[in-house]
Nucleic acid binder design. Structure first.
Lengths: 340, 340
DNA sequence: CTGTTAGCGCGTTCAA
DNA sequence: TTGAACGCGCTAACAG
């Protein structure tokens, strides 16, 4: 039952040409073969069910085409739609893409980079937030630099400040604009679910929100900023703690939609909606469609992010690393009705 | 700046041994090297930042380790958590896994299978429903059989009836049990959002539900079964059409949660919840947590599905293809309160 | 336009 | 326990 795969040699033999010629027709890059021969090779390949051995091709060429998208964890329901956007964009370009779920630790990512090195893959994109206290960061940078030194291209998505081409979103500005909008709507007593303190994205969004508040003449005391490694469920609990403290609050800003959903659900469960506490998030993830009340948030144009990333990967890099910033915009929905 | 990757030869040279010896120590499979030499090779590899060229290894060995998970589309918010389950299970086993998003058409899948063949990958898992009217199915089966004939292992998830190892869920039984439960709760006038008519999963769930109804002494006329290629949004619209027809309905069964969410949202938007129409789905996807009222559904143990799939892939196959069926169970929630 | 030749980097006999 | 030699399947350089 075990059947040896057909090799290029087999095809050539059957077509009555040399392996080189067979290679030329099977390889779109190499033109210049008589139509008759071309046809015979194609026919032979078809009959034999030939598939080019990509591994061997990679060895001979020294490099494979295609992009590897490196993820820390499998994107769940609340993850940014960024992954889907990148996959579509790359596929539309006709390039093969494969996702690698490395693991939560930076060490896991580093391992995956080395594997990608070993595969002699062409483009490596990676996404996911960075933490300011990451001790393994230098090692990661080293691995990525090796990857590039050996001929690969690296594109980082969402993590600014590393010496590689990267595309980020304007976290600060988006949160700033959101704050201004909320104040305009009449909110004054804010609380912030700020996520874990060492996350760069979380930090920028918190900071931007505070700046927006400041410009609007609204202040916010430190005890209204709640930090912690929050996912949706933890945000649910944190909202409860917050209210129990008895501080007057008329609006909660969560630094991402997942956490905002947790807050929203808590308020609903607690029957506290009558108190009129507004909730706003950040990202505009798809799951928001099924939620009541509809969540006010900052919409991020994920497809643009993906397009920029791909453009960076495919265009020649002249000088140093390039940075592309994608801007979002505030979307006011029912979760923050006009107040007063 | 362009730097040639370190080769095995480089490591051997630096360690003062032959490439063969170096290969032996870097290859856990080959034992029997003096400790001193082993240490020198390891040190040299470290110093040179050596990464084994996986492509070359694949050529030499004739096959790579690792599993490829083939998907039609990028799993979105409503997709089965099956992908995440498989990824985790495989990673826990220490095997590299990569996801390939092939495209919606069966032809796309076939292409991807051939690419996997070309990569000489070891295990190929694929998921996603099958349609009864798929003209390209024979070609797909052919491609998969080739893959296996050449030494790979194929595991199908969710699509029963093809000559490969497969794991499915008990769609019929789950829907059957759900119907029985709903009748017990007092519902009598059902409608079914049956999805597209040629989907095998959809068909089984519809049929199982009808059988359960029958056993409970409840009948359902054909005009209450709505078919169509429904996603969440289309289900939303279809629910509207259904109600506009004026048929008395006290419960809607949608063959998956995504569609059930659409129905639920329509009822809520239409203010029709007062009419007491119950809604039930199938799958128990995560997004349900944020929905009000909580959705009654059939819970599927996704982790078990993944575990079974991996077990099939890693265990020796003795005779023909094996089939493993995973059972779900009904979960009654607020969307179907006791009636009468 | 085509065939010959020579590698690509690694695993694996087979002797030593 | 080790090394020399060969082969994996394919591409690329060079003649013709």
């Amino acid at each position: 039952m075990q059947h040896r795969p057909a090799r290029l040699t087999d095809v050539a033999l059957r077509a009555g040409v040399s392996p080189a010629t067979a290679s030329r027709v099977l390889n779109p890059s190499n033109r210049g073969v008589k139509d008759a021969n071309r046809a015979r090779v194609l026919a032979a390949a078809e009959e034999l069910g030939y598939t080019t051995n990509i591994a061997a091709q990679a060895v001979a060429r020294g490099r494979t085409t295609g992009v590897t998208l490196l993820l820390r964890v499998m994107p769940d329901d609340y993850a940014n739609p960024i992954v889907a956007g990148v996959v579509d964009a790359v596929r539309n370009e006709g390039l093969p893409i494969s996702l690698v779920v490395a693991g939560p630790q930076t060490k896991d990512i580093i391992d995956a980079v080395h594997i990608a090195r070993g595969q002699r893959t062409q483009i490596l994109m990676t996404t996911g937030g960075r933490r300011t206290d990451d001790k393994d960061l230098p090692a990661l940078v080293d691995a990525l630099q090796r990857y590039e030194a050996e001929g690969g291209r690296v594109v980082l998505i969402s993590q600014e400040g590393l010496p590689f081409d990267t595309v980020t979103y304007a976290n600060k500005q988006g949160a700033h604009d959101l704050a201004v909008s909320l104040v305009e709507l009449g909110y004054r007593d804010f609380a912030i679910l700020a996520g874990f303190a060492n996350g760069m994205t979380q930090r920028d969004r918190t900071q931007g929100f505070l700046e927006g508040l400041g410009e609007s003449g609204v202040s916010l005391s430190a005890d209204r900023i709640v930090t912690g490694e929050f996912d949706r469920d933890a945000a649910y609990a944190a909202t409860g703690d917050l209210l129990r403290r008895g501080i007057p609050i008329d609006a909660i800003f969560a630094v991402n939609d997942a956490m905002a959903l947790g807050a929203l659900t808590f308020l609903r469960d607690a029957g506290a909606r009558g108190t009129g506490i507004g909730v706003a998030g950040f990202d505009d993830i798809k799951s928001l469609r099924d939620v009541t009340p509809a969540l006010t948030t900052v919409h991020l144009p994920w497809d643009d992010v993906a397009a920029e990333a791909l453009d960076l990967a495919l265009s020649e890099r002249v000088d140093g690393p390039r940075l592309r910033v994608v801007h979002g915009h505030v979307v006011i929905r029912e979760s923050t009705p006009r107040r007063g």
